[in-house]
Write a protein that binds this DNA or RNA. Sequence first.
DNA 1: TTGTTTGACTATCTTTGACCTTTGTTAAAT
DNA 2: ATTTAACAAAGGTCAAAGATAGTCAAACAA
Lengths: 155, 155
Amino acid sequence: MREMTSLADSIEEYLKKLLNLSASGFIDIKRKELSSKFSCVPSQVNYVLETRFTLEKGYLVESKRGGKGYVRLRKIKVPPESLLSFILRDIKKGPVDDVKAKGFIQMLYEEKYISLRESRIMEAVISSLHIIEDSSLQHRLNGLLLRNMLFILLK
Amino acid sequence: MREMTSLADSIEEYLKKLLNLSASGFIDIKRKELSSKFSCVPSQVNYVLETRFTLEKGYLVESKRGGKGYVRLRKIKVPPESLLSFILRDIKKGPVDDVKAKGFIQMLYEEKYISLRESRIMEAVISSLHIIEDSSLQHRLNGLLLRNMLFILLK
DNA sequence: TTGTTTGACTATCTTTGACCTTTGTTAAAT
DNA sequence: ATTTAACAAAGGTCAAAGATAGTCAAACAA
C-alpha cells in the first residue's frame, strides 16, 4: 500500500481543520512546534503556507519572529470573480508597469473598494517609484506594493 | 491557550495604561521597581523604551540618574497644524530607516491625520521596500514615499 | 517535469548581564 | 562651616545569547 498523502497535504489539512474550529476566524501557531508535530523541518511549514494558503486562495498569513514569535493564519472572503481576485491573478503573472498599476487603482476606486484619498496615496506611491533606475526592480515593486496594499483591504 | 505576549509587550502595555490613567500627561517610574514588578533585569525597561516609546511614535522619555532618580514618560501633544511639517522637516534632514518611517505613520494615525486603513497601507508600502538590496536607495525611498504620501493629505 | 522535502544560512526580535556614569548621603578631616 | 572621600542608589550602554521565523537552492519523488 503506497502513501497517498504528502506531508504537505497533511499539514494543510490539519491547519484547515484548526481554522474551522476556531471561533475567532484565525489561528496562531508556532512554526517550530508544528514542524515537530509532523516530524519535519520548519521550512516545510513555509512551503505549505506558500502553496496552499495564498491570498488568491483566500488566506492571510502574518507572522512575527523572535521570542514569543508566531504565525497567524486567517481565512478571508475573496469572491473568485471579484476585482480583487482578478488583480491578484494578474499581478502574479508578471511584471506590472505603472500604467497598469494605476489602472488597477482607478478601478478599485470606481468599484468602491478604496476611498479617493486611498487611491491618491497609492498613486503617489507608484509615481514615486519612477526614481528607481532599474526598471525591472521598479516593475517588481509595482506588483509587490499593489499586492501588499490590497492585502490590507482584506483584513 | 498558548501565551503569545512577550515580556516587552507586557511592559509596554502596562506603561501605556498608566499613561492613559494619568491626568498630568506624564508618568514617573523607577526603572528598578518596574523591572522587579516584571521580574526581569533593569535594562529590559530600556529596551522597551527604545523600541516602543520613541520620538517618532510620539513619546518623550526623560530621566535622571543617581539617588532620587527616575524615568519620566510623556506622550507628546503636537499642535495639529505642525505634525506634518514636523515630519516633513525630519525627512528632509536625512535618510529614513523603516523603524522611523513606521513610527511617523503610527503617530499620524494616533493623532487622527489618517485612518487605520490608510496607516496600514502606508506601513505595507514601507515594509515592501525591504526587497531593495541597496539600503541607501531603500532609505531614500522611505523618505520620498512618505513625503509624497503626506502631500496627498495636504490637498 | 512538477511538486515535495531538507538543511544551511539569514533576519528579526527579545532577554540577560557585565560594566559605566551620575547624583545623593554621610561622616571624617580641615 | 566647609571640604572631601567613600559609599550607596539610581539610571545608561552595549554586546552576547536565546528564540523564533524566512529564504533559497539542492536533492528527491511522482
